[in-house]
């Protein structure tokens, strides 16, 4: 379980988060939806412990994020792998730090995502690199999975592959996954919980199925409505 209590964060004069309360329940796949610059990446970085809140607190399984880093598998929006690494080198590196590294899962995903161990990360296409990042994150049996914009700048076919790999590797109940994206239609049937964020404020958070039942709308439609109203309030 991940909990945000009255968390505020600013970078210089930019308010990234403005007193947000968020609850990511254990074992759910949460969609973190909002336009660019809404504060999605900041939420991810706070959970990873590479940002600190100015006010409020962030708890990962009851403790400060920095102390729980071994539980979290983080896929940042930027390319965070050494460009000279071969996939095999990157995998060996990761496996040294995380006891939850699952070698057989790694091998399985490698062929599922049609990647080769000898590929050099700096020399492959953007889509392949996105899959490589995903491979390294999903090869761990980490209790918390943070995927920051896993679909950005990737062609439709690869997006589908990534979505499939996510379902393939997901372990019900055990894993809590947070996917941030501004492209909701990719994950419409993938998430069971949604958090809509805009300009550092939470506009809506609820169970995805409850929302559909209550509003007879798809998440995409709900987002359009929520953000239209949200902007009007400002």
């Amino acid at each position: 379980m991940i909990e945000f209590r009255q968390v505020s964060k600013r970078f210089g004069s930019v308010v990234a988060l403005d007193g947000v309360d968020i609850h990511f329940p254990q074992g759910s796949i949460c969609g973190l939806f909002g336009p660019n610059g809404a504060g999605k990446s900041t939420i991810m970085k706070l959970i990873t412990g590479i940002n600190y809140p100015d006010q409020g607190e962030v708890m990962v399984r009851g403790a400060a994020p920095k102390a729980q880093r071994q539980l979290v598998a983080y896929l940042p929006e930027v390319d965070h792998l050494y460009p000279w690494w071969k996939l095999a080198q990157a995998a060996r590196f990761m496996s040294a730090f995380y006891p939850d590294w699952d070698e057989s899962r790694y091998k399985g995903l490698l062929s599922f995502l049609q990647l080769d161990e000898q590929m050099v990360i700096g020399k492959i296409s953007k889509g392949q690199r996105a899959k490589a990042k995903l491979l390294l994150v999903l090869s761990r049996r980490a209790p918390y999975l943070l995927l920051d914009e896993p679909f950005s700048g990737i062609d439709l076919l690869t997006r589908e592959e990534i979505a499939n790999a996510l379902i393939e590797g997901y372990r019900e109940g055990e894993q809590t996954m947070i996917i941030s994206t501004h492209e909701i239609d990719e994950v419409e049937s993938l998430v069971d919980r949604v958090v809509f964020i805009e300009q550092g404020r939470i506009q809506l958070q609820d169970d995805a199925e409850q929302l559909r039942l209550k509003r007879n709308q798809s998440l995409v439609e709900i987002m359009k409505e929520v953000f239209r109203n949200g902007s009007q309030q400002v």
Binding site: T48, Q70, F97
Partner: peptide
């Protein structure tokens, strides 16, 4: 420069 700082800082070390 290479953004690998994201990897380094998220490692449990």
């Amino acid at each position: 420069g290479q953004n690998t700082i994201y990897l380094m800082m998220s490692l449990p070390v």
